[in-house]
Computed example of a mutant assay.
Amino acid sequence: SVMCQLVSAEGEQLGAALYLPHNVGPPQLQDIVNQLLHNEDKLPYAFYVGDEELSLQLGAFMQRNNATAEVTLRIVYQPQAVFRIRPVNRCSATIAGHTEAVLAVSFSPDGRCLASGSGDTTVRFWDLSTQTPLYTCKGQSVRFLP
């Protein structure tokens, strides 16, 4: 087994040093950190020894780096970004104006205006802060060429 001290990226020790088996790797370390921090949701962490990310089991890491088991291995844990996506279940605003289906929309580079193209052969430009039309361009029916 390997004596390990888990340390946050800010340098705070997470409990006392632990003896961990040689076959412990990042997935098991992640479980240990989540338990010690009492995280209800299992959060992802990356682990570092010195400047090197720990991607192997402890035994393989020790062997590859010629480290001795007599020294406490300082393992820095760092939380990884968690992206939670919420489903869209309602529309926050509507802009009435087209008489046919909207086929394409595009935001202006500054995000203040929206252009919408419709099957009614119009392109409308909208002020998004007031949700009012700025311009309406009327055209002929559109044919798409192969």
Rank of each mutant, 00 (worst) to 15 (best):
Y19M: 05
L36H: 12
P87A: 09
T130D: 03
C91G: 06
V105M: 09
L58I: 12
L37E: 14
D31I: 11
Q30A: 15
A104L: 07
Q140H: 15
L43G: 02
Q63N: 13
A60V: 07
T122Y: 02
A115T: 04
A81S: 14
A67K: 12
S8T: 13
P26V: 08
L37Q: 15
D51N: 15
P133K: 07
P44E: 12
L20S: 00
T121P: 00
L18C: 04
G139S: 04
F144I: 12
R112S: 08
Q28S: 11
P79S: 06
V76K: 04
N65D: 01
R90I: 06
Q30T: 15
T68W: 01
S116A: 07
S1H: 12
E40M: 12
S116T: 06
E52W: 06
S55M: 13
E53M: 08
F144E: 12
R74M: 10
V49Y: 07
D41A: 14
A46C: 15
T130G: 02
S116V: 01
R112Y: 05
H98N: 03
L54K: 02
D31Y: 08
A93T: 10
A67T: 07
Y19P: 00
S55I: 09
R64T: 04
V33G: 00
Q13E: 13
N65F: 03
V71Q: 09
L134R: 12
Q5C: 05
A81Y: 11
F125Q: 03
Y45G: 02
G50W: 04
E40H: 14
L20D: 00
V76W: 00
A93Q: 11
H38E: 15
Y19H: 11
F125R: 02
R90M: 10
R64Y: 02
G117A: 15
R124K: 15
Q35W: 10
V33F: 00
A115S: 07
Q13G: 03
Q30H: 13
H98M: 02
F107H: 13
S129G: 01
G11Y: 12
G50Q: 05
L20E: 00
L43Q: 14
L29W: 08
V2S: 02
T136V: 06
P44Q: 15
E70Q: 15
P26L: 08
S1T: 15
L58N: 05
P26I: 06
S92Y: 09
A104K: 11
R74T: 14
P109H: 09
K138A: 07
A46W: 07
A16G: 04
S92D: 14
G111R: 13
D41Y: 09
I95M: 11
N39H: 10
G97E: 01
M3E: 12
V102N: 01
C4E: 02
S92G: 10
E40V: 15
N34D: 05
A9I: 07
A9D: 14
K42T: 07
L128T: 01
G50K: 05
N66K: 11
L128H: 03
L73C: 15
